[in-house]
Nucleic acid binder design. Structure first.
Length: 453
RNA sequence: GGAGAGGUGGUAGAGUGGUAAUACAGCAGCCUGCUAAGCUGUGGGCGAGCAAUCGCCUCCCGAGUUCGAAUCUCGGUCUCUCCGCCA
């Protein structure tokens, strides 16, 4: 899967190249945990990342080396500060007792300590910065279930559902049909805003509204709590899920207020749990939300940006789970199954791919892509990505939970599109044509309020 | 947008330069039989240690002044009140 063919349904891949941006404070348990992994699982990490076709041996060894040099510093700093604190206390007591001269003597003794602790802090900062630089560029390790591979050619087809019929001779592509039926107006959008900002009109608008309701209510039935999040986020949130700084150019930025338009609901929904310590009883957490999504698609390339295939603004229902590590595989399966029920309800032929390591996003440990067969175009359209990020995002977000033994552990985060509207609309228009009309699948009729366009 | 007031542990709430009172809740232990009370311990994070324990950090965030900052200075942020504007 290259950048061009990514589904609109998931921002995590387009924007998540920033790597681990955690501020590397010595009191940060998460970063320490990552370093622990690097120290203790050096060979496994190098091996796992080789599946992505990259060799991180040098970076890893450099990190281990820097970490080794750095490790004695916190202890030394603590000791220095302890001595300094103790002297300060003495000064306080002497002053109280009116022994000014003695106090002045002790004061002099603190100067050296002050310099020393400031030097130690600088040293630590230096090491941390160097380590971060390296850590930023190491992507998540692929799960054991993920095959090695470099491109979409190496993705595995997990299963195929429904019939692939080629009706390209008798059916129309969605851009022609949408224009003919007067339900989506791309030209008007271009006039009022620009390319990639279509107007939906009449039954086109109602179809959008109905699909959103359909997806939200299915998510609710599956136990996801609905949120209506803000459509703009601050930079802390952008860092939290990995959109910043590397993919900054892909988001719309309001300079006056330093806010970004969300590229996916994943950002506000997952950032609810930034800087959070949960208890194991809280897990799993299941959230969903409908939002418009905004993407600049700067540097977008490829043969097919026509019609609904690539928009700057589109609608999506996103599902998110925060899970404990032992349950996240099952949670991922549940999310995949949920997306299947949606596609089956829409009576669309589809297949599920497990992405190979090299084709996955930077932050993902495992990703399933859903593709819908478009009979009219005679090709597969990507409509959803469902991923488990394991601890990678949690580490950046500082989202942990207290396990049964009272120990703080990183959670696992997962998300998926369920679903993104534009290509679903395209697929509905292209698959369900009959005598020049579009037949609405019966499961959707109650939500849209009509049965044909 | 303008003016003012404020942000302290799970909650309430003291604290104007000497290293976070107190009350309630929760949790743990002890004791006692009596509508459960009493007593003791206990904020959070990180590190060292088998452990008891010890050290550092933490009073919205970040810088600064100082031997020492919840407290003083600067910047930011959020909440509340009043004015203005407004769907």
């Amino acid at each position: 899967m290259n950048l061009d063919s990514r589904p609109e349904g998931d921002g995590s891949f387009l924007f998540s190249k920033g790597g681990d941006l955690e501020e590397f404070t010595r009191n940060s348990p998460n970063q320490m945990l990552t370093l622990t992994q690097i120290r203790e699982e050096r060979d496994q990490i190098i091996e796992a990342l080789s599946k992505r076709g990259i060799d991180v041996t040098d970076s890893i060894d450099k990190i281990i080396e820097l970490d080794k040099e750095r490790r004695s510093l916190p202890k030394e700093l603590d000791d220095t500060l302890a001595e300094s604190n103790s002297l300060s206390r003495q000064i306080g007591e002497l002053m109280k007792a009116g022994k000014r001269d003695e106090a002045e003597g002790v004061k002099a003794a603190t100067f050296g300590l002050k310099q020393k602790s400031s030097d130690l802090k600088d040293q630590m900062q230096g090491h941390e910065n160097s380590m971060n630089e390296l850590l930023y560029n190491i992507p998540n390790t692929p799960s054991e279930f993920v095959a090695a591979g470099k491109s979409e050619e190496d993705n595995e087809i997990v299963s195929t559902h429904g019939e692939q019929v080629d009706l390209s001779d008798t059916c129309k592509p969605h851009w022609d049909l949408a224009k003919e039926k007067g339900i989506i107006d791309f030209d008007l959008g271009a006039k009022v805003t620009g390319a990639g900002f279509p107007f939906y009109k009449g039954k086109g608008a109602k179809l959008q509204r109905g699909l959103i309701r359909f997806f939200l209510e299915k998510a609710e039935e599956a136990g996801y709590t609905e949120y209506i999040p803000p459509l703009m986020i601050n930079s802390d949130s952008g860092f939290g899920t990995g959109q910043l700084p590397d993919k900054e150019g892909q988001m719309y930025h309001m300079q006056n207020d330093d806010l970004y338009m969300i590229p996916t609901a994943e950002v506000p929904l997952t950032n609810i749990y930034r800087d959070t310590l949960l208890s194991s009883a809280d897990l799993p957490i299941k959230l969903c939300g409908y939002t418009p999504c905004f993407r600049r698609e700067a540097g977008s390339y490829g043969k097919d940006v026509r019609g609904l295939n690539r928009l700057h603004q589109f609608d999506k229902v996103e599902i998110v789970q925060i899970s404990d590590p032992s349950s996240s595989d099952a949670a991922l399966d549940g999310m995949v199954a949920h997306v299947q029920t949606l596609l089956e309800g829409l009576e669309l032929p589809y297949r599920i791919l497990r992405l190979c390591a090299g084709d996955m996003g930077f932050t993902a440990a495992i990703t399933y892509d859903f593709e819908v067969w478009s009979a009219a175009q005679g090709r597969w359209l990507e409509v959803s990505s469902v991923s488990n990020f394991e601890t990678f995002q949690a580490n950046r977000l500082k989202c942990r939970y207290k396990d049964e033994s009272g120990k703080n552990q990183l959670v696992h985060t997962l998300n998926g599109s369920a679903l993104a509207l534009p290509r679903i609309v395209a697929a509905l228009l292209e698959n369900h044509q009959s005598d020049g009309d579009v037949i609405i699948p019966s499961a959707l009729v109650p939500f849209v309020g009509f049965d044909r366009i």
